[in-house]
């Protein structure tokens, strides 16, 4: 029994010693509380405040500086991105559809592979695929307003003009799917919001991957159009490979938007 107590005392002392070391010796550092979504009062926000918000997101929630910093250099530095954007837009390797620096920056956040700065691509892809994570969903999960704020911040950082106003209206709460924006109000807006122009020639945009939709209303009826959006592979237009168009537009759009889109297409004659 004596041995039993000795062993117990020895073991407990060891544990207590470890605990004292971890609680008394080691400096207490509190992990940051979970990040909260910024409660934005956009109505009252001035542009400098909006830029400051962008800076905060850039250094904080957006976690951009983990890679875009001069020490680790895992990603290009962004101080002069606004200046360099114009060169990038002219670069033959550029694959995106931005027309000005503001759009270029936003695009590079949403579709980082549109232009990969030489030397920063995923190894083995010859700088065609960017290693940047999705920032509008997942761990980072910026909403549209936050993305815009970062764009404003980066533009200002490079000394460029900011071509847009502070977005008014409340930001939409974070959605699981990561696509978050106010519902579109016209058919053309729906087209823009879901990036139809990336593939189709539609509403002033000139995508070339999918069929030309500028006169689709003349050829197809409403029922066909409805099906073509919800189940794109049900009918394949001649001369185009099937299986290209995403099948989830039906889930992403609100019922109202879907209705607007179909009406818009049906009227395109």
């Amino acid at each position: 029994m004596k041995i039993f107590f000795r062993v117990i005392v020895f073991s407990v002392l060891t544990i207590v010693l470890y605990m004292l070391f971890a609680t008394q010796y080691i400096p207490p550092i509190n992990p940051a509380p979970p990040p909260k979504e910024e409660a934005l009062n956009l109505g009252a926000m001035t542009m400098p405040q909006f830029i400051a918000l962008g800076e905060k997101i850039f250094n904080g929630k957006g976690t951009c500086t983990l890679c875009h910093n001069p020490v680790v250099k895992r990603a290009p530095l962004l101080e002069s991105v606004a200046v360099r954007a114009n060169e990038r837009l002219k670069d033959p390797r550029y694959k995106g559809k931005a027309k000005n620096p503001a759009d270029y920056i936003e695009e590079s956040m949403r579709e980082p592979s549109a232009y990969v700065v030489a030397g920063f691509g995923v190894t083995g892809t010859n700088d065609t695929v960017s290693p940047m994570p999705v920032i509008t969903a997942g761990a980072i999960g910026l909403n549209d307003v936050e993305v815009k704020a970062v764009v404003a911040y980066l533009l200002q950082l490079g000394g460029a003009e900011i071509p847009f106003e502070v977005p008014r209206g409340q930001p939409v709460a974070e959605k699981k799917e990561g696509q978050a924006a106010a519902p579109a109000k016209t058919g053309a807006e729906v087209v823009k919001k879901y990036g139809c122009g990336g593939c189709h020639k539609i509403a002033g945009e000139a995508g070339a991957i999918g069929p030309d939709l500028t006169k689709i209303g003349a050829k197809r009826n409403v029922e066909y159009l409805r099906r073509a959006v919800l189940d794109p592979d049900a009918d394949i237009a001649q001369g185009f490979p099937g299986g290209m168009m995403p099948k989830d537009f039906g889930d992403k759009m609100t019922a109202g938007e879907f209705k607007l889109l179909v009406e818009f297409l049906a009227k395109s004659k």
Partner: peptide, 29 residues
């Protein structure tokens, strides 16, 4: 940190927090 399943499912409970090393050491002890 504040994820149940990292980047997919957030721990949204009111009292969610990441313990300090000292707190963890006590629980571990």
């Amino acid at each position: 940190q504040h994820w149940h399943v990292y980047t997919v499912m957030r721990d949204n409970s009111l009292d969610a927090f990441t313990p300090t090393i000292g707190y963890a050491a006590k629980v571990v002890s």
